[in-house]
Design a protein around this nucleic acid. Structure first.
Lengths: 240, 240
DNA sequence: CATGAATGTGGACACTCGTCTACTTTTTGT
DNA sequence: ACAAAAAGTAGACGAGTGTCCACATTCATG
């Protein structure tokens, strides 16, 4: 979540600032995320609880949001742009360092390909530990009670998957499989990574094991797909 | 969730029954699940709301539960015993009908093995549509705000995975891989099935596609594991 | 038959809730 | 300079909350 340093604003006798650009909206979003990432969920937060945590009066909520869904969607939107670009920058700096397949034509795992998977898993899980709030709240709302929140987080995961697939394609010499299968595998990897991420945050003593399991998972997906492709002869998709 | 037909009990002037065996505990659990499976989560339910839905006075809650975590854990416990045995019965009747591998020694998919995967996926997703409340609430609490609920649902998924692995081992002539890897794959399949299940419930128009994606996912996991095993020569685990 | 346990009840209590009205302060646009 | 917009405030309102006390009903046990 972007660290936002607010400009210094003098307060009135009342101890608050008013008028444009006072950052109340941002304070409400951050308060909700802070409360939702600890022992609460967004659905169980109260309006007065959030405004209290933000240091504003209850009615300030209605100056920025229509309802809690509105607040939640704003929170997801704020998190997603930062998370997505930050994660992608790191992965790109990694995959650009190497060019070649992960699985060779005869189905064997290329050592440097495996190393790239391992490094990618590492950077993703490191990223998770640096942004626990965003991940906890996001994954929690993925199956939460709000349909709009579920749809928003699902779309975010789809975006993550598309990014990842594009980055991997960039690293490969030739496509591993057709684009549709690649997108399907990308989504499934991202979905499964939500489980690894939550375990990684909640069970720090198992972190090495979780990294290895995530690496093996991704290898199984790629090796399995290559093998399935080999069993189903068809024209390979052109380079995108 | 087990359908419970209560014995006929005469009510007092007050319109309620009291004393032993009146089923108040059961009513509270069912009321909570009903509310939690629609537009709410367990964490956002109020005590009076649940007791009202159950048709009891607010204080009746304290006769059965200490707090909401207590209620939630009772609900998971009630769901899990029925879900687990019901699902397993169905799968066993399926896998007992055939004996043999899913992937042959040379890495090819055995047609009847693939058919078994397809049928198993089908029966699991049918089972999900028959028990939407249990799945929605269970998956929702998997990453919910209560650590005790998360641990309980996680354990339930682990149990599901162990059952599935044992059933598959029963169907296979010889073990596909070592027991530890098999358990890891089993857990990952069950975890991924939570995504397929939620999509299956929320996007009925995509059900055929979701079944196919789930089938391909499981095949990738097994074919990928066989291929990984073939690349890493080691003594195969003995039959369990 | 009496007693205790289980399990229900009504009512009270202090507190908190979401939402509204009316007002205040600050900034921006004309 | 003034008006409008943005964004804050206090206070009020009806409704609902969790929790407690004391009592009532039913069943099992000695």
């Amino acid at each position: 979540m972007a660290d936002m340093t607010e400009d210094i604003v003098e307060t009135t006798e009342r101890g608050s600032v008013m008028g444009r650009g006072t950052g109340g909206r941002q304070k409400l979003i951050e308060a909700a995320l802070e409360l939702a990432s600890t022992t609460r969920s967004l659905a169980s937060l109260g309006l007065r609880e959030v405004t209290r945590c933000a240091g504003l009066a209850p009615n300030a909520f209605y100056r920025h949001f229509r309802d809690f869904d509105d607040l939640g969607l704003a929170a997801v939107d704020m998190m997603s742009s930062g998370l997505r670009s930050g994660l992608r920058e790191r992965r790109l700096s990694l995959v650009r360092a190497r060019k070649g397949p992960i699985v060779s034509a005869d189905g064997a795992i290329v050592p440097s390909g495996r190393e790239a998977i391992r490094a990618t898993v590492g950077l993703v899980l490191d990223y998770v530990t640096e942004h626990p709030t965003a991940y906890v709240v996001g994954i929690r709302e993925l199956n939460g009670s709000s349909p709009r929140m579920r749809a928003a987080v699902r779309k975010l995961l789809d975006d993550f998957a598309r990014d990842m697939v594009e980055d991997i394609q960039q690293m490969l010499d030739a496509p591993m499989t057709d684009a549709v299968s690649m997108q399907e595998i990308g989504r499934q990897i991202i979905q499964q990574m939500t489980f690894f991420s939550m375990e990684y945050l909640e069970q720090p003593q198992r972190r090495d094991e979780i990294r290895e399991q995530a690496e093996r998972f991704i290898l199984r997906m790629f090796v399995g797909e290559m093998a399935l492709q080999a069993m189903t002869p068809k024209k390979k998709a052109g380079r995108k």
